[in-house]
Design a protein around this nucleic acid. Structure first.
Lengths: 145, 145
DNA sequence: TGGTAGTAATTACCTAGGTAAATATAAATA
DNA sequence: TATTTATATTTACCTAGGTAATTACTACCA
């Protein structure tokens, strides 16, 4: 995207219309920054998030529970995990008791990759705002929906 | 995406991490709502935005100026206009003086389509927050970047 | 027990948006 | 004037994310 800092103020008739564009612009910006940090590791922000969820789980968990924690719809969760499977960073096994369910587990290779990534650095790009400001932001975003 | 109202509070260690997810979630939500409203007209939110910019311009303007007003990078602007061209809602003409430049103009069909869409209804989904709240939101988002 | 309804995951087809590189042209400069 | 640099747009290849439909199964219920 372009440079909103330069362009956004002169362009919008009111704060709400600006907000509409600003939310989307910021979401893309955060994504771009995150993906740049993860580029050396050849995974995306969302793929990184899934790996962290799986490491935290400490055991195989269902596709559905990952989807819920990521607040994503099923097709997207499946697609992201397809990519992690191709890279052999996770393993899928079908549940024997209920054959609709697929369990997912982080692989040794996945754990090794995570160990290389500095979480502090990854989260740095939200340090421009305080915890209070983040709370205000969350309240307003929640109110929009 | 899932239901963030139900899930988001229980899942995140602090407000900043929640904000990171919340911004993206809200951006997608706004997009989904907007696209649903525009579904009967067979255009997307971004395509609608381009048509409105072109109607406002009242004359043919360059791809580059549209791109700047949308705060988008060039490849995306080109792609969106490809789609509008296919639908015959806009017309492209190459500048005779500087043959690198392409001028874009809304077509009669494009104007007719815009006339059918109720702007009030389209902007309604931001009416949950006040102008003051939108201003606060914009300030915090600007600070993040 | 057989039929129906609900659920978990996936697939197909669509959207926006990113980077890197290619193309074509204009402008500047040695 | 010829070469180099800058600009405007497009193309190719990648990402996430949406809906609708499909597949494979479980569960329920008459």
């Amino acid at each position: 995207m372009g440079n909103i800092a330069k362009d956004i103020n002169s362009t919008f008739p009111n704060e709400r219309v600006k907000a509409l564009i600003n939310i989307k612009y910021t979401a893309n910006w955060l994504d771009t920054i995150g993906n740049e940090l993860l580029k050396p590791f050849k995974i995306s922000v969302q793929q990184y998030n899934i790996l962290r969820i799986l490491r935290g789980a400490e055991e195989a968990i269902t596709v559905s529970s990952i989807r819920k924690r990521m607040i994503q719809k099923s097709p997207n969760a499946t697609r992201l995990m397809d990519k992690l499977c191709d890279k052999e960073l996770i393993e899928r096994t079908r549940c024997e008791n209920d054959r609709r369910i697929v369990y997912v587990k982080i692989s040794e290779q996945g754990l090794k990759l995570l160990a290389k990534i500095n979480i502090e650095e990854f989260n740095n790009h939200m340090n421009n705002i305080t915890e209070d400001e983040a709370e205000t932001l969350n309240k307003i975003l929640d109110k929009i929906r």
